[in-house]
């Protein structure tokens, strides 16, 4: 019996500016606990827009969104912030880190905000996550001094720090070389298989998508294939 961790029911979204435009059209799908899901589709088809809605940051949509069996579609901002803090880890497409803080602090901040563990335990945990992503030696550098790929990996470490139920990534390996991409991929695999965490990742990388558990294909704001088969 597969447990549903995230579900959408007919999510539709319009942009009104500059012209009335339907970006998302009746998006309905389910994501299971421990699943490694990828989303593919042409540039501009609405992948990022969908991900912002799934991550609870964008609340202007029609339809229903369930996370961890709760319909959060009409929740207040403060409650959504708490959900994001505790249950969702997010890796952005472009903007990554707080530039004036060290890499270590960047990774620690979501856990400090959550406040469930003592400071030194959080620090230790952050070091472990950075090590996992091959960045232990960069821990005390200001994050603005890192390369794009390094920054993206720190952002992944940060997404993992609170052991979230769901990790969402908007092209999380977009800036990485094949070796690092491979490393991220195996980290994600391990998180899903060993720890039952769920991954939803938008990607343009065919190999990355191919190796995931399931791939959703989007086109012009619609899901055209819930279980994309690679040829």
């Amino acid at each position: 019996m597969k447990e549903i961790i995230l579900k959408t029911e007919s999510i539709t979204k319009h942009f009104h500016d500059p012209v009335e435009f339907k970006v998302l059209d009746e998006i309905s799908f389910e994501v299971y606990k421990g699943e490694f899901l990828t989303v593919i589709g042409k540039s501009g088809c609405g992948k990022s827009t969908l991900l912002y809605i799934l991550s609870t940051m964008d609340t202007e949509f029609d339809g229903e969104l369930f996370i961890d069996n709760q319909n959060i579609s009409r929740w207040k901002q403060d409650k959504l912030a708490a959900i994001r803090n505790e249950k969702i880890g997010f890796v952005f497409q472009f903007h990554y880190l707080l530039g004036e803080f060290t890499c270590l602090k960047n990774v620690m901040i979501p856990a400090l905000r959550l406040g469930k563990l003592p400071y030194d335990v959080i620090e230790e945990k952050a070091y472990q996550k950075l090590e996992l992503l091959g960045l232990k030696d960069q821990a005390l550098k200001p994050s603005s001094k890192l390369s794009g790929g390094q920054q993206q990996r720190v952002a992944i470490a940060r997404a993992l720090i609170n052991d979230p139920l769901i990790i969402m990534g908007d092209e999380p390996t977009g800036n990485l070389d094949s070796m690092n991409t491979q490393n991220i991929f195996s980290i994600f695999k391990e998180l899903t298989q060993e720890f039952g965490q769920t991954i939803i990742a938008v990607t343009h990388d065919q190999d990355f998508a191919k190796a995931s558990d399931r791939t959703i294909e989007m086109q012009d704001g619609k899901i055209i294939n819930q279980n994309y088969k690679f040829i």
Binding site: S55, M57, Q77, D78, A81, A82, I83, R84, N85, E86, F90, F92, H95, Y96, L97, L98, G99, I109, P110, R113, L114, R158
Partner: peptide, 13 residues
């Protein structure tokens, strides 16, 4: 940008 990131990772208003 920082504010957007902080809000994304769970800081409220």
């Amino acid at each position: 940008n920082d504010i957007a990131i902080l809000k994304a990772i769970g800081f409220n208003g």
